[in-house]
Design a protein around this nucleic acid. Structure first.
Lengths: 217, 217, 217, 217
DNA sequence: AATGAATGAGGTTTCATTCAT
DNA sequence: AATGAATGAAACCTCATTCAT
């Protein structure tokens, strides 16, 4: 289906552009990202970039939209698997870890945009994000009803799950720089999936309903 | 003993500049922040800004340095208070919450810089950050020795404590935008101190050493 | 086959820019030359100037490179003509005079850069200059072997030939200013070619091997 | 006489400023020279520099004026010594070499200003320079009358004498840079006085009246 | 679908000079 | 005689975007 045999033409320009944009946005952030460099990495003419996708803001929105969709897919898949609230909850950081494994630029872009207060995203896209929060809320409330979780603020739990994971994913890069300067204890979590498991383990125990105290005599 | 009675001169120019810089960096991020606007907010001539503090990068470093120092102070104060590992650990998110209360721009700048991988900070400043991690590690290991915590990766705990808090602080702003669009359940943590308590409560229970199981009869 | 009929478009933008740059560098010197003015004289947008050639330093280097090439061409042409050391030597100031006639800004730029110690030129370009010195050295040494020149430092001869010519070319402008103030004897060399001849005449006699003294009877 | 014992106060501020200005003007040229740096080198407050000498243009003029005066003094001294036209003529490059030995920045400033066409000097100062030319002219014309020089353009001779010397003085710095890149024959004139002697030797022979041709039989 | 050229606005930084004390 | 602070203009350069072909 490729139009030419040129090395980069095997993948459609739009795809190349979005990938290039993602990587530059991740590395530099929205403002510091240069349209010039995105075009260069996509091996595309700058004008073509406008032709195929649109201006810088559109570029960014498309990139973010794709990852949000992927998160939603992962969570949808998890929904079907089991209705154990503990498994449901653990699926949240794991979904993020999976998408991050697929698209390494994702945690950086996401954290940057959170820090920016969503400044580069339109209303509709923010609303999409809400669906992810809703997933966690249902799990927490389900667990509560079933007596496996104590009463906790579901939003707090969500933010801890996701925040911890994204934070860890990003901090790793900074940590590597520090390790280049001074030797550090050797305990960084190896990969994000491992981190995701560590996070849900702690949080699940953290919100578990304590066993009924032994009744006083 | 202010030098002049002019409305903005009650506080030293350097202070005004750093405060203005902090607010602009928080709102816009390093690259999108304009020296022009920083100067305007500081009510200072653009050239004066260079005279008093230095270029944009220096400006940023000074701002970050100040908040790191404040975090270190808060933790140092907590160190003196008690040697209960649980209290020590709870002091970490609380220190961040306190500094954030004092300097509202802090969580945003910090999260942005984490997402940037420390790109705008010199090596020495990254090293300073290590001291904060060390505080958590000592608390976790102390708790372990005393038998109140189970064996967990201290770095993971640290990143969860700090990451959760910073993430919550930032997500709040995005959340408010969403709330303007569609009504949401009314459960956002009121202030950061409350969030800090919620976080440490969950994590402390999450890493607590389980009581010895009663032996089966 | 000009692209447009617009009045300034008959000559390629890059050419116009280099010419404009040359004239401004000559008039004002590297530091005082304004990119703004270069663009104006080239009838080009300031950004286009960066697009077509590069920054101020690059602009300068390209201009200098062109004239060095021209000098080398002139000398190469002279090499083929004759192998009389006297003619070879005379070709040196004449080459400079010819290039100066073609590009009036050349002596000024060159003298300015000599005075700057080559501060705006990269190593490779300085090396190019060496080839010109080598030409003179070969002529002087050739003349020595053939017994027409006495033993003199070839570098000294080179610097006198070139220095005199460039100095005269530049002093003329200053001299004109003086003449506007007070009347002067009417003896300025008319053009640079004449000056070049005057210079080589004096220097050739100056380094000529004196005839063998008539032996005393 | 010194007002204070402070290390830099033994020499009057005005002197320090002029010396600092001279060195910066020599190194960087008029436009690139920064008032800031001049003040720093003079160990003087920037405002004081304006108080003691004046603005940048004035600073420059004072520096140039001083060296012109010194050249005039040297030539005046030479006038008294002998009335041999050859010695008179040789005194010209030697005067420049002497002043250069005293004030190393002099040849650079001078050559730069020649290249600038005197742009930074007022009319009166240009006129002063004329007196130097006049010295050479008298020597050349005197020598002509006495039958030791042939008929040559005195201005040409002057420009060759002075131009060669200044050119050599400046080229030396560029030459050193080249030598750092590639090894070169070892024949640079050691110091300027030696160069001055080399120059006048060649030029004196170059304009010497040829011995009467042996009359044709 | 593709490109090189064009553009205007804006970015950061520096500079010579002066003022208030 | 001396200083730190102030200022406005201008410097160089980059950017996102569009146009003509």
């Amino acid at each position: 289906m490729a139009k030419r045999a040129a090395p980069n033409a095997v993948v459609e320009p739009r795809r190349r552009i979005l990938d290039a944009a993602a990587s530059v946005f991740a590395e530099r952030g929205f403002s510091a990202a240069g349209v010039e460099e995105i075009a260069r990495r996509a091996e595309v003419n700058k004008a073509m970039l406008y032709y195929h996708v649109g201006d810088k803001a559109t570029l960014f929105r498309e990139v973010v939209l794709e990852v949000i969709r992927r998160i939603q897919e992962e969570l949808a898949a998890a929904t079907g698997t089991s209705d154990d609230p503990r498994k449901r909850l653990a699926a949240v950081p794991m979904a993020f870890a999976r998408v991050a494994a697929e698209r390494p630029y994702f945690p950086q872009i996401m954290l940057r945009e959170i820090a920016a207060g969503g400044a580069h995203l339109p209303d509709e896209m923010l609303v999409e994000i809400t669906s992810v929060v809703a997933f966690t809320r249902r799990a927490v409330e389900g667990g509560r009803r079933k007596g496996v979780f104590r009463g906790v603020n579901p939003l707090l739990v969500h933010l801890m799950l996701v925040g911890s994971l994204l934070f860890i994913a990003n901090a790793t890069r900074m940590r590597r720089r520090i390790e280049d300067i001074q030797p550090l204890p050797r305990n960084t979590p190896k990969d994000l999936a491992t981190a995701a498991r560590g996070i849900s383990e702690i949080i699940l125990q953290g919100i578990a309903k304590p066993r009924a105290r032994r009744r006083r005599p």
